[in-house]
């Protein structure tokens, strides 16, 4: 299942293939399934009473959108959640027809010396689908079509390689939680997280939960560093609990509950470096009268690029942490509702 979730295309605003896949996989395990106006897939499992727990994972991935076609047939594009430095010479696919292309650039022989000093910008890049004119290009690709990297999923032992781990790993974890748990709950597979936590806001308004956990992927910090500042989190060392990031300061009691649960069940865990990034929990906790929220993330190297690396042990431990934690929450229903 991780292979399909990684390889299928679902850039922000174009999550339909992912949604259809998830629907098919979980339809027998849930009691209700709603697709809202913006494409969030919201499911209910079990008989939810006073306490409404919401787990979310976003279906969308980073990518790009076609903004123009040159006379030469080369395509101009804008990025969604991507830095231009990771684009150079990468293989891509565009649109529902999955037209293959490559991100083109000036060849090294023609780059002026002073240009080598400067970081590449998106405006210096274009997508080449191997055609020679605008008319020919228009037969394959239109303005506004979305594209992503062409990356094959691969696994070696417990290590997995692929694109879109942010946040298809979260989608996978939610699907597993739905299958495994007996706790009544809502799950939302959200859209447009990478474009600004948009789907989650709408989904949370609909579900109106008291407690929410965003399940996402986070960048691990394993690159060499000169100073004595230990970098973290690391892949293989367990799921990552957020204390505070740019989008929210997590509910203290939920953080404590996750930590306590992990310790009780001997699940490895680590903390996220504070005040970096943001997740759907940021949008969710400000919904309606406020929602007590936290984020649980799987560490992955090189997210927001064509290829990320993660560890299946972290995913399994994360699923265990989630199922055990929602059980602990449900046991003290009156405290949380």
């Amino acid at each position: 299942m991780l292979r399909e979730l990684s390889e299928y295309m679902g850039v922000s605003g174009g999550e339909q293939r992912i949604r259809a896949f998830i629907k098919e996989q979980i339809k027998d395990d849930v009691d209700e399934m709603i697709e809202d106006a913006y494409g969030n897939l919201i499911v209910k499992k079990g008989k939810v009473t006073a306490l409404r727990i919401l787990l979310t994972a976003h279906m969308d991935e980073v990518g790009f959108i076609i903004t123009g076609i040159e006379k030469s047939g080369l395509l101009r594009f804008a990025t969604i959640g991507l830095a231009p430095q990771v684009l150079y010479a990468k293989r891509v696919v565009i649109g529902e027809k999955a037209i293959p292309g490559v991100i083109g650039h000036k060849p090294v022989h023609q780059v002026k010396h002073e240009e080598t000093e400067k970081l590449v910008e998106t405006k210096d890049l274009f997508i080449d689908i191997g055609v020679s004119s605008k008319d020919e290009a228009k037969k394959h690709v239109g303005i506004g079509e979305l594209g992503t990297f062409c990356t094959e999923f691969r696994e070696v032992g417990e290590t997995i390689f692929g694109k879109a781990f942010d946040d298809r790993i979260g989608c996978y974890m939610l699907m597993e939680v739905i299958k495994k748990t007996s706790v009544p709950l809502y799950c939302a597979f959200t859209v447009q997280e990478e474009a600004g936590l948009r789907g989650a806001r709408i989904a949370a308004y609909r579900v109106n939960p008291q407690v929410a956990i965003a399940v996402d992927a986070t960048a691990s910090g394993e690159w060499p560093e000169e100073k004595d500042v230990p970098l973290y989190p690391e892949i293989g060392k367990g799921p990552v609990i957020t204390i505070a990031d740019r989008s929210l300061i997590c509910d203290r009691e939920l953080v404590a509950l996750l930590e306590h649960t992990a310790q009780k069940h001997a699940i490895p865990y680590q903390f996220k470096k504070p005040m970096i990034g943001g997740t759907d929990a940021g949008a969710i906790h400000l919904t309606r009268e406020g929602v007590r929220a936290v984020a649980v993330q799987t560490p992955a190297r090189y997210i927001h690029s064509p290829l990320a690396i993660a560890n299946k042990k972290d995913i399994k431990a994360g699923i265990k942490l989630l199922t055990s934690s929602i059980e602990a929450i449900a046991q003290k229903e009156s405290q949380w509702s």
Binding site: K227, D228, V229, P230, I243, A244, I249, K273, P274, M275
Partner: peptide, 17 residues
């Protein structure tokens, strides 16, 4: 301020709230 690292010598690195 929020603590982001504790180094070998016991100094804390931090960022802003």
């Amino acid at each position: 301020l929020i603590v982001t690292h504790v180094d070998k010598k016991g100094f804390l690195r931090f960022t802003n709230i």
